[in-house]
Every structure is written in structure tokens, then in C-alpha cells.
Amino acid sequence: MSPEDDLKILIITTMISSYPGANTVGQARLQYSPGTFIVRVPDPVMLPEEFYLDSFAKGIDGIIIMSSGSDCPYEGAYPRLSKRAGRVYARMKEQGIDTSRLKLTTICTVCKAAFLKEIREMQQNILKAKAA
């Protein structure tokens, strides 16, 4: 097992955008590490700051929030989410958690390359932080 596969990366996906995007990656048979766990949500704006901090405390190595960005159908949700992510980063710093373990990004229904890139980068960040 490669060190990437041993990681537990939570990928928060939206019903309208990044979850179908993850399906598109599968339909194209593009390969990535099984150390990745996709969780479907109506919108990540529903998750409180504690969700991220508690998940790290429980042993999740990294969290990628794949939002719908400007395609988000919910009014005001994306600005709220991005502000919340900012507060989580601040609290991670306070608690000595490497902030590269959390990433807020936007993935569309056909963003195959970007989906894979986010996973690769998160794995590299976590392994680098672990090695340090």
C-alpha cells in the first residue's frame, strides 16, 4: 500500500455540481487513490466549523470542500461558506493544525482534471506535513 492510499481524505461534494463531477471522473475511468471518501451534501454551507475541527481530531487527514462556486443555486451560500472556511483556517492555526489539510475549491460536473489535481495536491500536502 502506498502512503497516499493509507490516508483518509474526506471529499465534501455538492449534489448539483461536484458529486456528478466525481461520477464523471469515474465514467472516464480516471484513477486516483482509494484513501478518499466522498460525502454528498446538498450544500457544504450546512456544515459548522466544528465539523471540520472534530473530523481532524478524529483522525481525518485532509478535507477537500468541492463547492459549486458561482454555480451554487443557493442564494448567498458560497460567500457564507468561504467566510466559514476562513474562520476554520484561523482556528486550525490556533490549534496547531496544518492549514493545508483543508481546501475549499470549486468543482463542476465535468471538472475531471481539477478533481484529480485537488486530490493529488492534498495528498502531497499531508505527506509533506507528516514528514516535517
Binding site: 500500500m1 471522473v25 469515474g26 475511468r29 484513477q31
Partner: peptide, 21 residues
């Protein structure tokens, strides 16, 4: 639980890893 598009189709080379996941 989606274990096709988001597991078997994307972890073809790692049967054990895909099963654990």
C-alpha cells in the same frame, strides 16, 4: 452508497484498497 463511479471504476489497480474503502 456509490461504490461504482466513485470506487471500483476509479481504483481498478488496487482491489484490496477499493474493498477496504
Amino acid at each position: 452508497v456509490n461504490i461504482r463511479e466513485q470506487a471500483s471504476w476509479v481504483h481498478k489497480g488496487d482491489h484490496e484498497g477499493a474493498t477496504r474503502k
